[in-house]
Write a protein that binds this DNA or RNA. Structure first.
Lengths: 239, 239
DNA sequence: GAGTGGTCTAGACCACATC
DNA sequence: ATGTGGTCTAGACCACTCT
């Protein structure tokens, strides 16, 4: 285990433990270095993680403090947040994940899909449409495109389960991350019937391009969430 | 200017310049160190910024590469994104910002507002409701609460302009950041008449708690955006 | 095996808020 | 003026990818 991750984990726990309470000043950097037997830079890196998570703030000349706004009760991390591991792993803690496959075809890519996936227009892609439910409640309609040259031999049974698990465990490829554009729209009839929405109720669309550690894009998708099952929590630190 | 910011700025420009093109390998770390006459750690910090912006990826044993998904044409940064500087500064490049004040009162805080602002229920807060327009087009209805003990002597003319400018320039206080929860909802009649929405069109609500560098919360607000004028771009890197 | 980037240390000096 | 956290350097060693 990397030292800076171990340290940040320990201090994070102390914040949730209320060993370090809201608004409280943490020991000075050099004291923490002694406590954890590490160098200044390592401690800095550990604390930077907690800053980016919105748990602490650091002020030159003053010290390091637990933020007043920390929610030490239930973590609000049921939110969309860092959804990179895929739907299954993200929601599996909440209940039973079910998948209904609406479409599973191989088609020639159109201009936009080809652009996003950095392939040639007309190159074949999987076109997958699925409804994902948690405890029987529909959360999202996923419309995904994946190049058959990258994600090889995808089968119906993989599509009914976790595609990300297939990519990582079966194909042995590593996922790097994704770019996501989040917007809201009025729902259409397709959304309404599949997600159980009223006519005036909206969806939140996430347009997502995901790629492997090699830099190769492997997924372009449009995820249409029931508005009640989408929230995004962001911590914004100035500069 | 900090060295690592200067370096990351220069390399960022080279990516947008196409001096470094999509998918291209950057020089090795030690070569970049020589080029910019800096230490390994400083270069690492500079490149980390570009990683977090989604412009490059680094792979141990392989090298540093410009991402294939970089949009080197128009920056998509008209998005909500890092909206910390406040609406005025964020949108001022897009056109003329107008503000219509619907409410400007001092009221006793309710339980929820007091909790968020870490004050006692009943402590007085400014209650401000404004419609913000860009080039005459309404973008958002802002409903804001600020403790009168923190944001002192706010006047009608400040509320008609930029409150953030008042806080920083007149009061000389520094803004640290904010926590934001983003969700979509069907619009109500108030939204429809003020934002020019049809009955079936939604809004995106941002629930925001902002605080000063001292850790003191100074703003709790609910921003209701016209759905066409809200988008959020996120780069998610695994782990 | 060669060559990448990642982690960690030790120490000098700087910028900033107020102990 | 003091004492915080921030930046920068120099160098050792480790982990991973690609032949």
């Amino acid at each position: 285990m990397k030292k800076y991750l171990a340290i940040s984990k320990d201090i994070r726990e102390k914040i949730f433990n209320k060993t370090y309470k809201q608004g409280m000043k943490l020991p000075y950097e050099y004291e923490l270095c002694e406590e954890y037997k590490c160098n200044k830079q390592t401690m800095k890196k550990a604390l930077e993680i907690l800053v980016s998570e919105g748990l602490i703030i650091r002020r030159r000349g003053a010290g390091t403090f637990v933020k007043n706004t920390v929610n030490t009760e239930g973590t609000p991390e049921l939110t969309y947040g860092h959804y990179i591991k895929g739907f299954t792993k993200h929601f599996t803690s909440l209940g039973e994940v079910e998948t209904k496959v609406l479409q599973f075809n191989v088609i020639p890519s159109d201009r936009e899909t080809a652009d996003k996936l950095k392939i040639k227009k007309g190159d074949f892609v999987y076109c997958i449409e699925r409804v994902r439910k948690v405890n029987g409640i529909p959360h999202v309609i996923e419309l995904m495109y994946m190049p058959i040259s990258v994600i090889t031999n995808l089968r119906q049974e993989d599509v009914e389960g976790s595609i990300y698990t297939y990519i990582e465990d079966e194909l042995g490829k590593k996922i790097q991350g994704s770019n996501q554009l989040i917007k809201a729209y009025p729902s259409n009839e397709h959304d309404q019937s599949n997600l159980g929405l009223e006519k005036n109720e909206p969806i939140v669309e996430v347009e997502k391009t995901a790629y492997l550690t090699t830099g190769v894009p492997f997924e372009y998708s449009r995820l249409r969430f029931h508005y009640k099952h989408f929230s995004f929590y962001a911590v914004v630190n100035k500069m």
